[in-house]
Computed example of a mutant assay.
Amino acid sequence: MKIIAVIPARYNSTRFPGKLMEKLGDKTVIATTYQNVVATGLFQDVFVATDSEIIYDEILQNGGKAVMTGEHETGSDRIAEAVNNIDCDIVINVQGDEPFLKTEPLKQLIQVFEEDRAQEISLASLKIQLQDYEDVQNPNNVKVITDNNGYALYFSRSVIPYPRETSVPTLYYKHIGVYAFRKEALLKFSQLEQKPLEIAEKIECIRYLEYGMKIKMIETQFVGVGIDTPEDLEKAKKLLK
Score class of each variant (00 low, 15 high):
R117H: 14
S125D: 13
T33R: 14
R117K: 15
V48K: 09
K216G: 07
I121G: 08
F155Q: 03
V48A: 10
L42S: 13
P105M: 02
Q129M: 08
D116T: 02
L240W: 09
T50E: 03
I79N: 11
I145Y: 04
K237T: 03
F100I: 06
Q44E: 15
V144T: 09
Q131E: 12
I218M: 14
D232L: 07
T32P: 04
L109C: 01
L240H: 09
A49R: 04
A5E: 06
L192W: 15
F155L: 11
T146L: 02
Y133V: 01
G96P: 03
L60A: 00
K174Y: 00
Q35Y: 05
Y11D: 12
N85Y: 08
Q108Y: 02
A39G: 05
V48W: 07
Q221N: 15
I199C: 01
I218L: 15
Y34R: 07
G41P: 04
I7W: 06
V94E: 05
I4A: 04
A82P: 05
K102I: 00
D228N: 14
S190D: 14
D132I: 02
V136L: 03
D147V: 03
F222R: 10
A180Q: 09
A39M: 12
K216L: 10
V38D: 01
N62S: 10
I199Q: 13
Q61D: 14
K183Y: 08
F155M: 06
A200Y: 13
V83C: 09
L186Q: 10
L187A: 10
G224E: 11
M21C: 06
V94Q: 05
T50V: 05
T32G: 03
S13T: 13
K27E: 15
P196H: 12
V83S: 11
V178W: 03
V67Y: 09
E204L: 01
D228I: 00
A180C: 06
V29S: 07
E184A: 09
P163C: 07
I86F: 07
R157W: 00
G212Y: 11
A236C: 08
E193A: 10
R207T: 14
G226V: 05
G75P: 02
L192F: 10
L171A: 14
Q191P: 00
K238V: 14
L192Q: 15
A5L: 06
G212P: 05
P163I: 04
V83N: 12
P161S: 10
V6Q: 00
Q111C: 01
K19G: 01
K241Y: 07
I55Y: 04
N149F: 13
Q194N: 12
H175M: 07
L171N: 15
Q95H: 13
R164I: 13
L126N: 04
